[in-house]
Computed example of a mutant assay.
Amino acid sequence: MSKQQRAPLPHDFHPEVPSFTVVSEDLAPGAELGAAQVYAEGNTSPRLRWEGFPAETKSFAVTCFDPDAPTGSGFWHWVLFDIPSSVTELPAGAGGGSFAGLPEGAVHARNDYGSKDFGGAAPPAGERHRYVFTVYAVDSERLGPDEDSSPAVVGFHLRFHTLGRAQLIGEYEAPSGD
């Protein structure tokens, strides 16, 4: 997909909410994802820290979405929710299947790879895709869905329970293989 034909971002159709700040030592805004965040290389979720969220926040959710995937509906790489409001940072690798670094009670829903963890970037050869890491401030301690829910169901609940949103967008282009 060319830059002129890029798909909308995942929140373009959600109600506007206040923004807050998310940062990462592993990912700079608009920069190329590191090898650690590529599926065939490190497949490791980046370290994320956030601040400035609404005072009434009761929990957080974190997602990673590729709006440029050639699916017609994008591709969900990470869906994590029910993170306690006292947690404002996830270490690198917290999205791994072992759940190391995740706070008690946090729930991984399945991603579009079909696994309950972070799945790294894997665009078709020669294509540059955006990877939208989003932290949601949520108005309840429990969002409602469970670990077997699809990303669409989690997104549906987030649409109605998000108090604020922060995002960090990185890019990755798979080698063309020429």
Rank of each mutant, 00 (worst) to 15 (best):
L168K: 01
S19L: 05
Q5K: 07
A94E: 04
P124N: 09
G97D: 12
G34I: 08
V135M: 07
H161N: 15
T44V: 11
G101K: 04
A106V: 06
V22M: 10
R6I: 02
L102R: 15
S86R: 14
P8A: 09
A92Y: 13
I83P: 08
A100R: 07
G30L: 10
F13P: 00
L102C: 08
A152S: 14
A61W: 01
F118R: 05
G95Q: 01
R165V: 09
A69K: 10
A100P: 00
L9W: 00
Y136Q: 08
L80N: 04
V138R: 01
L90I: 02
P84Y: 14
V107T: 15
F13L: 01
D112E: 13
S115P: 00
A36Q: 15
A31G: 13
Q167P: 00
L163H: 07
F118I: 03
R130N: 11
D26G: 13
G170K: 10
A36Y: 06
I83H: 08
P91K: 09
F75P: 11
G120Y: 12
P70I: 09
T71Y: 03
G170R: 11
K58C: 05
V154T: 13
A7G: 00
S59R: 07
N111Q: 03
D139C: 05
E147F: 11
P67C: 06
L90P: 09
D68N: 14
F160E: 14
V79R: 02
N43Q: 08
E32Q: 15
S45T: 06
A92T: 13
N111Y: 05
V22K: 09
A61V: 01
V107E: 08
D112L: 06
A100D: 13
V22R: 04
R6W: 08
A137E: 06
Y136A: 10
V38I: 15
K116V: 04
A152D: 15
G105I: 13
T57Q: 02
P46Q: 10
G30F: 13
P29S: 12
S85Q: 14
Q37K: 06
R165T: 10
